[in-house]
């Protein structure tokens, strides 16, 4: 749904110089959309699973690293597919270069952003015991990362 929304917003197949801003906005929208779509849901995952996890750990069913690794592997297929779907829907509509190699370069960046964002989400989820605390804390992490990512501010002018 967000891809359709983005396609409608940026779907002009940009061909004139006045739409450079739209092109840059399209890049920003695509990457930040992927980040938030995968970061926010994971922030509240572990709190729900914690009672079960505690019982199973007390029973000695598995080690912690096995729990974390299998959770990553179980989610890997959907995390591979979703950025590919979004990229396939938006890439050519926005009007990036229509070369397959560049398409997959962009997909690789989106894929790694999804993985990094979900990892950060799981970390916050594991640190905070309550969903409300984790959700309240997540913008404090996210927005400075957005600000200091080098897109909005030239960091050499700051540090």
């Amino acid at each position: 749904m967000m891809s359709v929304f983005g396609g409608l917003g940026f779907g002009t197949n940009l061909t004139n110089p006045s739409e450079v801003q739209s092109m840059a906005g399209g890049i920003y929208f695509t990457t930040v959309l992927q980040m938030f779509l995968n970061f926010l849901p994971t922030v509240i995952v572990f709190q729900g699973e914690k009672p079960i996890f505690v019982r199973e750990r007390d029973s000695g069913l598995y080690q912690i690293w096995i729990y974390a690794t299998t959770k990553l592997l179980a989610e890997m297929p959907i995390m591979l597919f979703v950025p590919f779907l979004l990229n396939a829907m938006l890439y050519f509509v926005i009007g990036y270069e229509d070369r397959l190699s560049v398409f997959f370069e962009f997909y690789l960046i989106l894929l790694l952003m999804v993985q990094a964002a979900s990892s950060l989400g799981y970390f916050l989820s594991s640190v905070f015991n309550h969903e409300t605390t984790a959700v309240a804390f997540s913008p404090i992490i996210n927005l400075p990362l957005n600000l200091l990512g080098g897109y909005m501010i030239n960091l050499k002018n700051v540090f």
């Binding site: 974390a68 990553l72 993985q115 990094a116 799981y122 970390f123 594991s126």
Partner: peptide, 20 residues
């Protein structure tokens, strides 16, 4: 950028395990 993203991914996955 790819290496930085990979590093962030691995770092926070390890931090999840450390936290738990």
């Amino acid at each position: 950028s790819v290496y930085y993203l990979l590093a962030i991914f691995v770092f926070f996955r390890v931090m999840v395990i450390v936290s738990l």
